[in-house]
Design a binder for these strands. Structure first.
Length: 645
RNA sequence: GCCAGCGUAGCUCAGUUGGUAGAGCAGCUGAUUCGUAAUCAGCAGGUCAGGAGUUCGAAUCUCCUCGCUGGCUCCA
């Protein structure tokens, strides 16, 4: 028989392995880099015999996305072998490939320590040096169960039970056998670059009712250079950490005395978020929203009626006023519905869009708090759109456009998810189906690609989530659009139709930035603290060479401020280099230097934070430059928001 | 909440086997009047997160509380 490999066709003898066939078809160099082969839709081990009827095989290189997965997963096997050798009593569970490497979860009488990691890594090095081949064999369920029972691997037996079919595949390398569907690299020597990074606890089966296992994480790449690059990338990402930049740039802080998860905004941080919030108010007014404001505390009965008390109580804070129980709001929807209910509504009034920069409190578990990205008090740019069911589609598409405008303004790349009905939820099946379909149709209408996230919706309705990435590529949910038929029913929202009858409106919950705090955190990491000029707390700093230039600096700063530019002077008795360095570290967009020459010509010398020097410029010209810079991102994004005026 | 690791001056970090703490930057004072990422000198600054215990003696060992970090579960 003949098999095609790329452009070559090679003859295959009976009993030849995939690897042998590829070796014939490829150059030595290309073959050396091959870890598995693609056969149809599946990946296949190089040691496998060529399947009957096989027409084509594609080599998969170690540094391809698929190949990397194989390398990483094989590294997990090697790590498990090393752990079993050093700690024979440890039980293995599962060990998949992940984004930059792999992990493996172990059940052991004690957690592993950083010193253990060093020993495990050394043992892995020995296993790799020995270059043991990965053997694959097919076994019946009974046979496999006997193997793991004998080894005392209780968790593997449980994994085995969950696998469908009569047979399973077992992989053995060196002295270690694992239940695995494969594929793997041909032998342990193919692992060129891996490093165990940290240990963490992880619940068995991801269930917090079940035992906690010890997870060992490792990074793995096709070659040492790629691994080195990744470790360097981690170091660089640390410099972009918003918590570090928040301190460096004096934007915000946390205080042990104030409490966990409570942000304290310093002048510069508070200024940035105020500008962001002003921008949002204007954008919302432009798009037909009404700005509203509700109370921070609402009576407990109201939360019972909404279903929050039943479904969300453990995340809420309660207090008492004159023997009446109150709940601190974790969401803003209730008062918005009360506004709707404050009078009769006609079909002509709809849609009604209520917007609130609402401060909410949520009792997040202590272990999940994370800088600005996960806090206990935060401000949502929240809106509730109450509309007729026939208006839903159009409204959802308008929101998606809004999100695209704003997220695009900052240059974020984003991912969209559609989250469907969770186990713990309220409302009828019909309502859920209607709501889910509305979201799907809007996504398709807006041409937004999305991933399905089954069972991840809010308890009252399905949602579209938009996720942004932080410095370490972790994804954080920011914008979300939730479709809700349940709360309008619970609160008996009504409108009078053209037919004179009373009808039930639908409700959309949505945020654009999500939480101002979280968005600021992601934005700080995205920009490394170098905010776009329109958001920069200080847009221009005037730097004098000596005190002889102070008076002119004062004239210049007054002119800039009058034009609405956030400018300040640095008149300190320091060398120019020192002042430049400080302004540079504060990421101030415009440094305006004044010395003898500038004073003579009533001008300034312009330095940008990029290091670029624009030379001598007229003050008027510089003001235009800065104002233009403020508006540039909006013009690019097709928005006509005019921040400076 | 769970698992692990941490908490030393405003910030970044030293601190050997237990013998009551140091550096750089920032701050203050003085000198210097200087052209695009750090001028020099001096001074001051800490109940070593908080509490309890072991010990003749604790930043260091043990326990508890608070907080932080990385994961897990959960979530904007």
């Amino acid at each position: 028989m003949h098999v095609r490999v790329g452009e070559n066709t090679v003859e295959v003898q009976a009993g030849e392995s995939v690897g042998q066939v590829l070796a014939k078809a490829l150059s030595g160099k290309a073959y050396k880099n091959t870890v598995v082969a693609r056969y149809g839709d599946a990946l296949i081990d190089l040691s496998s015999p060529v399947p009957a009827g096989c027409e084509a095989l594609t080599p998969v290189a170690a540094d391809s996305p698929e190949g990397l997965d194989v390398v990483r997963h094989s590294a997990a096997h090697v790590m498990a072998e090393a752990v079993k050798k050093l700690f024979p009593k440890a039980q293995v569970t599962i060990g998949p490939a992940i984004e930059h490497g792999f992990y493996y979860d172990f059940a052991f009488e004690r957690p592993f320590t950083p010193e253990d990691l060093v020993a495990i890594q050394a043992e892995m090095d020995r296993i790799v040096a020995a270059n043991h081949p990965f053997f694959c064999r097919t076994a019946s369920r009974e046979e496999a169960a006997a193997v793991f029972d004998k080894m005392g691997e209780q968790y593997k037996l449980e994994v085995l039970e969950a696998i469908p079919g009569d047979t399973v595949t077992l992989y053995t390398q060196g002295g270690f056998t694992d239940l695995c569907r494969g594929p793997h690299v041909p032998s342990t020597g193919f692992l060129k670059a891996y490093k165990l990074t940290h240990v963490a606890g992880a619940y068995w089966r991801g269930d917090d009712k079940r035992p906690m296992l010890t997870r060992i994480y490792g990074a793995a790449f096709a070659d040492a250079n790629a691994l080195k690059k990744y470790l360097h990338h981690l170091e660089e990402a640390k410099k972009r950490d918003h918590r570090r930049l928040g301190t460096q740039l004096d934007l915000f802080s946390f205080s042990e005395e104030a409490g966990a998860g409570m942000v304290i905004w310093h002048p510069k941080g508070a200024l940035v978020r105020t500008i962001l919030e002003d921008f949002e108010r204007k954008e919302h007014l432009k798009r037909g929203y009404h700005i509203v404001q509700g109370p921070q505390l609402l009576k407990r009965e109201l939360w019972e009626r909404s279903g929050h008390y039943e479904n969300y109580r453990e995340n809420m804070y309660f207090t008492e006023i004159d023997e009446q129980a109150y709940g601190v709001k974790p969401m803003n929807c209730l008062s918005h519905m009360l506004i709707y209910k404050s009078r009769m509504r006609s079909y002509r009034d709809l849609p009604l869009r209520y917007f609130e920069l609402g401060v909410v409190h949520r009792h997040e578990k202590s272990g999940v708090l994370h800088g600005l990205l996960r806090v206990r008090q935060f401000t949502q740019d929240d809106a509730h759109i109450i509309c007729r069911p026939d208006q839903l589609q159009e409204e959802i598409i308008a929101i998606i456009d809004f999100v695209r405008d704003v997220v695009g303004l900052f240059g974020f790349e984003f991912e969209a998810n559609l989250s469907t009905r969770p186990e713990k939820s309220i409302g009828s099946d019909e309502a859920w189906e209607l709501a889910t379909n509305a979201l799907i149709q809007a996504l398709e209408g807006a041409g937004l690609p999305y991933q399905l996230n089954e069972g991840d919706g809010a308890f009252y309705g399905p949602k579209i989530d938009i996720k942004l990435k932080d410095a370490l590529d972790r994804r954080w949910q920011c914008a979300t659009i939730q479709c809700d038929f349940t709360l309008p029913e619970r609160f008996d929202l009504m409108y009078t139709g053209a037919d004179g009858e009373r009808h039930r409106p639908a409700m959309l919950h949505r945020v654009i930035l999500g939480a101002v705090e979280r968005f600021m955190g992601v934005l700080i990491e995205h920009t490394t603290g170098a905010f776009p000029t329109w958001l920069a707390p200080v847009q221009a700093r005037i730097l004098t060479v000596t005190e002889a230039h102070d008076a002119h600096a004062q004239v210049v700063v007054d002119r800039l401020r009058n034009a609405g530019i956030r400018a300040e002077t640095d008149l300190r008795n320091e060398k120019l280099g020192y002042k430049v360095r400080e302004a540079q570290m504060e990421k101030i967009p415009y440094m305006l230097v004044i010395g003898d020459q500038e004073m003579e010509q009533r001008a300034v010398n312009v330095r940008l934070r990029s290091g670029e020097n624009l030379g001598l410029k007229d003050v008027e010209e510089v003001m235009d430059l800065i104002l233009e810079d403020c508006q540039a991102p909006f013009k690019r994004g097709g928005m006509r928001y005019n921040f400076c005026q």
